[in-house]
Every structure is written in structure tokens, then in C-alpha cells.
């Protein structure tokens, strides 16, 4: 078994501290980056199954949502609430609307 390869942008430490926000929503506040880590990181960090599936469909350079500059907010909202291919939909308990807005804001920051 190979050593795990972590994303250049997300060190192990950041990944874990991001996920810690899940246990303490108050700490994450309106922080889109921390919320993305907590609500989406399980599948969208390096080696997450979302990243793997996207690498296959769109190519490795577009696999990590955190590095994308071509996502549009309406599309992100739609995918999260309706699901897509292998991505199961998320409920408003999983990600309340306000959190989803913070996440989409962060994912589309580079546009």
C-alpha cells in the first residue's frame, strides 16, 4: 500500500482542523472554507471519492473543487440539493441554506 497523497493545498493538518468545525458549528461561523471542509471534505479532498470521480470525468486538473475557478453558484446549489451521478443529495440539516451560501461563495471566489 502506497503512502497517502494529500493535496498540495490541503495539508493533513488543515484537513483535520477544517473537519473539526463539524463538531463545533459556532467555530465555523460564516467561514466558507471551513464549512466546505466540514460538509464536503469527506468526498472532495484529495483521494475523496468525489475528487476521484471528478478526476475521471473532467480530468485531474479539475478534480479538486477547492482549486476550481470555473464553478458557478447556481450549479453548486443544484448539485448539492439534487445530487449528481454518484454524489448523493444533501439535506438542509446536513447543510443549512445559509451554510450552503457561504460554501458557494467560497467555491466561486476565483471567478
Amino acid at each position: 500500500m502506497a503512502e497517502p497523497r494529500y493535496a498540495l493545498v490541503f495539508s493533513v493538518a488543515l484537513a483535520l482542523s477544517g473537519l473539526a468545525a463539524a463538531a463545533d458549528p459556532a467555530a465555523s461561523g460564516g467561514n466558507g472554507e471551513a464549512l466546505f471542509a466540514a460538509r464536503c471534505g469527506a468526498c472532495h479532498f484529495e483521494e475523496g471519492m468525489g475528487s476521484n470521480v471528478l478526476a475521471k470525468r473532467l480530468g485531474p486538473e479539475r478534480a479538486l473543487l477547492a482549486q476550481r475557478d470555473d464553478l458557478n453558484a447556481e450549479y453548486v446549489r443544484l448539485v448539492v440539493r439534487r445530487g449528481m451521478g454518484m454524489m448523493p443529495f444533501l439535506t438542509r440539516v446536513d447543510v443549512p441554506d445559509a451554510e450552503l451560501e457561504a460554501i458557494t461563495g467560497w467555491l466561486t471566489r476565483q471567478r
Binding site: A42, G48, M49, M86
Partner: peptide, 11 residues
């Protein structure tokens, strides 16, 4: 360590 990777099999 928690993982969701096995879900990928359904692809």
C-alpha cells in the same frame, strides 16, 4: 479513520 471512499464502488 473515517472514510467515504468505498462509496465509489457504486460508480
Amino acid at each position: 479513520v473515517p472514510t467515504a471512499m468505498p462509496l465509489q464502488m457504486s460508480n
